[in-house]
Design a protein around this nucleic acid. Structure first.
Lengths: 198, 198
DNA sequence: AGCATAAGCGGACTTTACCCCGTTTAATTC
DNA sequence: GAATTAAACGGGGTAAAGTCCGCTTATGCT
């Protein structure tokens, strides 16, 4: 009675999901993310379109699935890794470290991240940034009444430059320029330092 | 050497643009922005689909056109209005005032703003926020090397909460809750105060 | 092994943004 | 006021996301 619960994923379904993700990765590498249409992906994988939608629900869902592994690894670093990114350092240090790490992560994954946002998707790339910032801000001496607003604003300050269509030209698959992440990391550090000092 | 000017807009074109904008406004008021499809708009206005695209280029273009008037008025207040929003106050005061005013503006127009972003559009809702913040930050005592990063981050901190699909649930035409703009205004004030104090 | 059934599958269908291009018309020139 | 011409117009055509639903199949049970 190995499985008492809901029902395991069927073997063919698992196989097909793997196959679709692999095909998608290949298509992105070869032609860029925008060439990954649902029809083309289905055909390349030798499956029906309905299957693709059943698996991922939406086009953005494919890219979210591709992102999930790395996102989980990142999350582990934050939750259980060594300080200052992980637990142990004081809140300001952790905020700064988180900003640096997140900036690097988003710069690395910007192509897939951008693709995972397309169209009306109610889900944040990851709610992790929001809740992590909220938690850390809560441990500073900032007035509690300001926490909610600041949490939202710092979250968008950190992730917005990578998520809003306007800071990255989105036609060409041009990555954020090399200086971009550095400038943002510097800005973030100053922002946090000045925000939390007494 | 016939024309010193490029060529005036044809009368029928002007008339049709007016008509399309008016129709769009009515449709938004009655059924919400997402019911404004290009076909429906063309039909309601009694014009052809091709005409709608000729005028506005893209669906988002319609909403941008609707926004333009108000945006221009807002810009005037900032550039030539009374302080602290207009010129005259010190940079920190102007930054705070700008944040309050912009937050209110975006909250008022959130429906159209959101609609004007749909799909790949290379244009920022307005580049004004970015350049205004850059200008004002430049007049503070912040280290010049941090200006670029901070400019981008403050811009996204201010506008991001209204532009990113994730802070406003976008299915329902639910406005940002009443408290939302207030929280954001408070957060912004604290952010600026702490950022620019010596 | 045989059966029942929930899950998976596929592809036709619908919707909507956006394109194309032959036709019409406003503005200008003589 | 007729001719000219560049712009505006219309609406059918295409591409791509997402839906539907009848058919197929893996799985767990007996």
């Amino acid at each position: 009675m190995p499985f008492g619960k809901p029902r395991p994923e069927r073997a063919d379904a698992a196989r097909n999901r793997e196959r679709l993700l692999e095909t998608a990765r290949a298509m992105i590498a070869e032609h860029g993310a925008e060439k990954v249409t649902m029809d083309a992906l289905a055909e390349q994988a030798g499956l029906g379109k309905g299957t693709v939608f059943r698996r991922f629900g939406t086009r953005a869902g494919i890219f979210r699935a591709l992102l999930d592994d790395d996102e989980r690894r990142f999350q582990e670093q934050v939750l259980t890794g060594p300080p200052p990114l992980g637990p142990g350092a004081d809140p300001a240090q952790r905020l700064i470290a988180y900003g640096h790490a997140r900036t690097a992560f988003l710069a690395d994954h910007y192509l897939i991240v951008r693709a995972s946002l397309e169209r009306r998707e109610p889900r944040w790339v990851s709610g992790m940034t929001l809740s992590h910032i909220r938690m850390l801000l809560g441990r500073t001496s900032l007035p509690p009444s300001a926490l909610e607003g600041l949490t939202v604003q710092l979250t968008t300050a950190l992730e917005g430059p990578f998520l809003l269509p306007h800071f990255l030209t989105d036609q060409t698959p041009e990555p954020p320029s090399d200086t971009h992440p550095t400038l943002l990391s510097d800005g973030w550090r100053i922002l946090i330092e000045r925000l939390v000092r007494d």
